[in-house]
Write a protein that binds this DNA or RNA. Sequence first.
RNA 1: GCCUCGGUGGUGGAACUGGUAGACACGUCAGACUCAAAAUCUGAUGGGCUUUGCCCGUGCCGGUUCGAUUCCGGCCCGAGGUACCA
Length: 813
Amino acid sequence: MSYTPSEIEAKWQKQWEEEQAFEPSDSHTHPKKYILSMFPFPSGRLHMGHVRNYAIGDALARYYRKQQFNVLHPIGWDAFGMPAENAAIKHGRHPKDWTYSNIDYMRKELNTLGLSFSKTREFATCDPLYTKHEQKFIIEMFEKGLLYRESTTVNWCESCHTVLANEQVEEGCCWRCDNPVELKEMPGYYLDIIRYADELLEDLAQLEGKWPSQVITMQRNWIGKSQGLAFDFELTEESKAKFGGKFDRYEVFTTRPDTIYGVTYSALAPEHPITKYLVEHNLLEDEVAQKIKAIANMSEVERAKQDKEGYPLGISVIHPLTGEQIPVWTANFVLASYGGGAVMAVPAHDERDFEFATTYNLPIKRVIEGGEALPYTGNGTLIDSGRFSCVENDEAKTAIINYMEEEGKGKGTTNYKLRNWGVSRQRYWGAPIPFVHCEDCGLVPEKFENLPVALPDDVEITGEGNPLENHPTWKQCKCPKCGGEALRETDTLDTFVQSSWYQFRYATNPKKWEEVGIDKADADYWLGVDQYIGGIEHAILHLLYARFFTKVLRDLGYHDVDEPFERLLTQGMVLKDGAKMSKSKGNTVDPDALVAKYGADTARLFILFAAPPQKELEWNDSAVDGAFRFIKKLYDRKSKVAGSTLPDIDHSALGKESKLARVKVYEALQKSTEVYEKSFAFNTLIAACMEALNALDKQDDGDVWTEGMYIMLNLLEPIIPHVATELSETLFARENFGGKIEVKEEVFVQESILYVVMIGGKKRTQIEVDPSASEEEILALAKEAGQKWLQGMQIVKEIVVPNKLVNLAVKPS
RNA sequence: GCCUCGGUGGUGGAACUGGUAGACACGUCAGACUCAAAAUCUGAUGGGCUUUGCCCGUGCCGGUUCGAUUCCGGCCCGAGGUACCA
């Protein structure tokens, strides 16, 4: 019978479904593996990136299940978000309806791929039951002071009509729609991720070697910890007078306290309170005030593109160490959002300060020796630095901080680039932020027993404004505290909040889902995720937020896990014609069509064979044919199998070709452990199996065939589960799936060993050597075989690499 | 600019801690089967040459070594991240 994937795949998918074959055991004592591919957004259809993601995860889940581990391999839906609302605007469909029907369709698509997901743990993050527990966490975070509401300057995307977190701004544009982001002052909810910045940074060390190094580096840079000195510049008496007592000093931060004697001016952000005061109280020339306002209206990205620009503010400060008067400027390169929006400027040793000083003819004072030209930002000895002259600048950093602290003039301080996570979105299709605004009580969390604060179904989604805000009655409510009239918060949570804790939700036994968000015993047993698989685009966003949430939930007592994802694999993109597959480019390959034509096994085999999982994968239609051919051939060779169990084979009695076939089979077996547990180079394992099958084909020993198929089907089951299970069932009653198969070392023992003979570093010939031969004997054989290249040569060195080669270094005699 | 990763045949990619570069597959070419085609099978396939064999060859230049795709130094190119963070 020839290979008919449609029949075989339907048969096994049905059987797995009936057997509930992939449900984890409730036991907490059995060794476990938690294999997780990032859950999909229910966009409507699966794409090849999904297929790749789940093929990798499924291979690992199936491998560990076969090694008798208790395996959790769940799937769910990251179901809130803008596209659902966009669909509502475009096609008039309700986001809920759009989302859940997409889920139904995509679930079917996943089923046809034969993925071994737990069915009982599936959920969508828009399920009210999920929202209920999430809202409880949010309230608990509020009570711990981790969540707060504040009005500040935010990133605003006009096209999405919502606020964006810092992490969601890419090169000044919205991560979702690519519109330029504007700055806007408005109230919002923030999670104090900076409180965890140090732990998030330090714990990266335990992920070393288990996460891709570039992801670790990206997170480290994003957190951006820097240590330095914070100190106050006191205004001169004359300057103080201008502010009517409102300001007499301001704080600056520097990572280069060693250059403090080189300060020749100070610069404030246009948004700095002092700058603002001067502008608003008409203490500057009209023209200057206008220019400052113009800068303030520019986004940070726009400013970065401009030349250095600034204006003197007509005030001065006193240098804390020299007592000199220092002029104060406002400048477009000083960021309001970092280090207090004020800097000390040292043009001699800072590129920006230098550029600015050159533009405006401000003095430049060198205080560190080294380099010829200024600015010089390297190390060296301090000069012209009072009591610190002649000190190396590295030492001077701490010495100056210590001195400033002793004198009560400043203190050592840590700053982070990381900003607190703004989690409120002015959108409908999200989890409502469970707070109420009461005139008497202020901001009040909803009572736990009233959760979830559910979304109203009857909304009008037009794309104009926030549908919850516009709803006629939804926001009218009673204050949970005083019972008076109050207004419900209409902002919803960022969707990244849902994906920050879903790994704990899967781990929680579904029987407890109603009652608890996370079950502690379940979480402590299953987490961290042993292998997490997903796209590198989440290197900062999702992976940082999920790490943060894990630590917060730990501190709220929900579990004892420090890091959610023990090991991380970032898969490469699927490309066609050198570009990322996308509808707009018209270069997509539809997974459904592929499965219909070749079957799921071929799709999975091709995807894992075409490239190592970390790399980009270039689509190739004829290589898909090749994958199909291999499966067909494998299926066809079932007729060669002579027995129904692993045979005992007398290796020495076999012919040369059969011996070689066994070597190839056992080499593949040996390789499999490393591939499934460490390198994930499925392409090399598949290649090893192809070599084994090619070698088996060159001989005709029934037992060798039996052994070969027995082993190969075991190795390939995680990759091509349907056909491997079908063949194993008919040939071996699936006995070959019973556990780890032992490597028979005697197969690798050779009667003679091939040595390459190199002369002068070049491969010349080869010799067959008895395994028991001594080094002298090997060398003698090599010299004899290489005689013609040794003519007129003198051997200067002899190297024998055991079981590999002989190298004779020569020179003309 | 800075950080990270990468650069191997016509293509995707192999090569363990330095030890026969190009496994496996795709493509191409030739052949077998066929009236023909498809499917299948067999063989060849890094480049060059004066082809029993020799020379060159893993982005470029240099170094260490008996021996370098692998280690070191300098450069070129590509991808990703980040971007006035004081």
